[in-house]
Amino acid sequence: MDLQVRHLAAFVALCEEGTYTGAAARLHLTQPSLTRTVQDLERILGIALVDRAARRLELTGDGREFHARARQILTELGELETDMRGRAEVRLGFAWLLPSEWFGRVRAAWDGLGGRLAIHRTDDPVGDLARGRLDFALVRNTRNGNDTLTWHRIGTERRVLAMAADSPLADRAGLRWCELADQPLVVNPRSGTTMPDNWPEPHPAREIVTCRNFDEWLELVSAGRGIGAVPAIAVHRAPHPGVVYRELPDIPDSPLYLGCRRIPPPSRTLRRFLDIALRPDATVAGPQRG
C-alpha cells in the first residue's frame, strides 16, 4: 500500500485532537477505522510514530517529525485546492441581451479571483441548465423550470413596447399599456419577458404568435405580426429598421433571475460565484422612468 493523503489526515488529526476518539469524530470515522489507518501508516513507513507504552498519547521522535511535515503538506494541499478551484471555469447561459452592467461587475469580480467565466448563448437556457450543460442560467422567465433548479431574483428591468415601424401605434399620442390587451402579441415562451397575463384583463380572443428565440421575435414584430415588450437595453443593443421601441408610463417592469441546479448541490466553486453574483452591488435595477 502506498502513502496516501488519508494517512496524513488521520495522523495529523490524531496529534491535534490527542485521542483516537476525538480524531475519529473529527474525520467522521469509527475509532477502529482510524486506528487501522494509523497502523497502516506505520507499516508503510516502517517506523513507529506512536509510543504505545505510554498511558497517554505520546509520539516518538519520528512521529513528531512526521507530524510537522505532514501538517505542512496538508496545508499546502488545501491552499492548492482553493487556488485551483478558484480558477475553475463557470458556464453561464443566456438567451438574449445580457444586462451589461451586472455582467461586467460579476465578470470583473470573478476574474479578480482567478476564475474563468464562459458564456453560452442558447435558445433554451432553462432546459440546458436542468440537463447539466450550464452551471448558471440568466433568464427573464422561469416557466420551464423544475424542482431540481433554484432561482434567485437579481433585479428588475424597465421594458419598452416594440411594434412594427409602420404600425398605427408607432405615432399614437398618449398610448398606454393597458389599451393593448387585444393587440396580436408575439411571445417567446422559453425566454421572453411578455405573456398575455402581463395585462390585468387579457383579451380572450387575442391572437398569440409564438417564436423560439429573440431573432425570430424581432423579425415577427418587424413584419407586423404582433406587438411585444423587451428590456429597455434593446433600444440601443438591438436596433432594427423595421421595429420601433416606445416607452409607456404604465408598462410593467420585468424580473431578472439567476438560476442554478439544486440537485446535485453546487460545488464550492459554484457557491463562490453565486456569492459574487448575488452581492448587493451586483443587482440589476432598471433606469428610472422619465
Rank of each mutant, 00 (worst) to 15 (best):
H7T: 09
H7A: 15
H7S: 12
F11L: 08
F11E: 05
F11P: 02
F11W: 00
V12P: 00
A13I: 12
A13T: 08
L14Q: 02
E16K: 13
E16R: 15
E17R: 15
E17A: 15
G22H: 04
A24V: 08
R26M: 15
Q31S: 11
S33K: 13
L34P: 00
R36T: 13
Q39T: 14
D40Q: 14
R43V: 12
R43S: 13
G46V: 07
D51C: 03
D51T: 03
A53Q: 12
R55E: 09
R55Y: 04
R55W: 02
L57Y: 00
D62C: 08
A68H: 12
A70L: 09
R71L: 15
Q72C: 13
L74I: 12
L77K: 12
G78T: 09
E79D: 14
T82A: 15
R87D: 07
A88C: 13
A88T: 10
E89G: 13
L92A: 07
G93S: 04
F94R: 00
F94H: 02
A95L: 03
W102T: 02
G104D: 05
G104H: 05
R107K: 14
A109M: 09
A109P: 01
G112H: 09
G114Q: 10
G114L: 11
I119E: 06
H120N: 11
D123E: 12
V126R: 00
G127N: 01
G127Y: 06
D128A: 13
A130Y: 02
R133E: 15
D135V: 06
R140Q: 14
N144Y: 14
L149C: 04
I154A: 00
I154Q: 01
R158K: 09
V160W: 03
V160R: 02
V160L: 10
V160H: 01
L169C: 13
L169T: 04
G174P: 05
W177Q: 05
N188S: 11
S191E: 05
D197G: 06
E201K: 11
P202S: 07
H203G: 09
T210W: 02
T210Q: 11
V221G: 00
S222W: 05
G226I: 01
I227R: 00
A229K: 01
A232W: 10
A234M: 07
R237W: 06
P239R: 10
P239D: 08
P255F: 02
P255C: 05
Y257L: 08
L258N: 02
C260H: 14
R261T: 04
R261C: 07
I263P: 04
I263Q: 13
P264G: 05
P264F: 06
P266V: 08
P266N: 09
R268A: 15
T269Y: 06
L270K: 14
L274A: 11
D275K: 07
A282K: 04
A285F: 08
A285I: 14
P287D: 05
Q288Y: 06
